[in-house]
């Protein structure tokens, strides 16, 4: 599943120093669980995103281990502290070895 994977992230553009901000992330991925069968009764092999990380200026915010019980198009919402202006980096790791990433800048006033 390397096609049609599109990460989407919502981060506020500005924040006050030390403020807790809410981040929402979504990535389009079918998250095939490995439990389903096709019309011929064969098991469809597992193909999921197994890890998601969010970092700010190289420091970790959250590191999530995903199992097949996470829904299609994995969605996460969490909170982060921003001590200074910088860049969030979001990374998703696919079972097939692909890595998807995106980043967002934030201004701290």
């Amino acid at each position: 599943m390397a096609s049609g994977v599109k990460p989407r992230v919502k981060v506020p553009k500005t924040a006050a120093a030390g403020e807790a901000i809410t981040i929402k992330t979504l990535i389009s991925h079918k998250m095939e669980s490995g439990q389903r069968k096709d019309d011929d009764g064969n098991v469809i092999p597992r193909s999921i995103i197994n890890r998601f990380t969010a970092d700010f200026n190289g420091q970790n915010v959250i590191d999530v281990t995903l199992e097949p019980a996470i829904s299609t198009n994995p969605y996460f919402q969490f909170e982060a502290i921003v001590p200074e202006s910088g860049e969030f980096k979001f990374t998703w790791y696919d079972d097939d070895g692909d890595v998807y990433d995106t980043s967002k800048k934030i201004e701290v006033s």
């Binding site: 807790a20 901000i21 669980s33 970092d55 700010f56 420091q59 970790n60 915010v61 959250i62 590191d63 999530v64 281990t65 995903l66 199992e67 097949p68 019980a69 996470i70 829904s71 994995p74 969605y75 996460f76 919402q77 969490f78 909170e79 982060a80 502290i81 921003v82 001590p83």
Partner: peptide, 20 residues
């Protein structure tokens, strides 16, 4: 289902997601 590990810049130790 999932494991959330919080880093030094995590604010409230909370997270939401959608599961099967």
């Amino acid at each position: 289902v999932a494991t959330f590990t919080f880093g030094p810049l995590s604010a409230s130790r909370s997270a939401s997601t959608r599961i099967r």
